[in-house]
């Protein structure tokens, strides 16, 4: 099965945008990037979160959701302009769309 790559952009009701780009290969997340015009600290945390998701099953929404909320709780000091839910939603939606036939 060939790899599929794409991005999903979510405009948050908190005023900012999060854009998630991912590559799905053999039903798993091969690569993922979280970008956007939101605010938060530390800057490196969002890249580390993306790395943490690599290898997870693209259809395992529960596991992805759990990983995202656990990581944010432990590693992100603050986030403004988007909510934690927005971030999780953007990741799941990006992965879901790429998993569809």
């Amino acid at each position: 099965m060939s790899a599929r790559r794409g991005c999903f952009t979510l405009r948050s009701t908190h005023g900012k945008t999060v854009r998630v780009c991912a590559t799905i290969a053999n039903g798993r997340i091969e690569h993922l990037t979280i970008t956007g015009d939101f605010f938060g600290e530390p800057v490196e945390a969002f890249r580390k979160l993306a790395d943490e998701l690599i290898g997870l099953g693209a259809d395992d929404a529960e596991e992805i959701r759990k990983k995202v909320s656990g990581f944010l709780r432990e590693n992100v000091k603050w986030i403004e302009g988007i909510s934690e839910e927005d971030l999780g939603k953007a990741i799941l939606e990006c992965v879901r769309r790429l998993s569809e036939n």
Binding site: C21, H31, T33, T35, R47
Partner: peptide, 8 residues
């Protein structure tokens, strides 16, 4: 480049 350093 930003966080896309590992992007395809």
């Amino acid at each position: 480049l930003g966080p896309c350093v590992k992007c395809p």
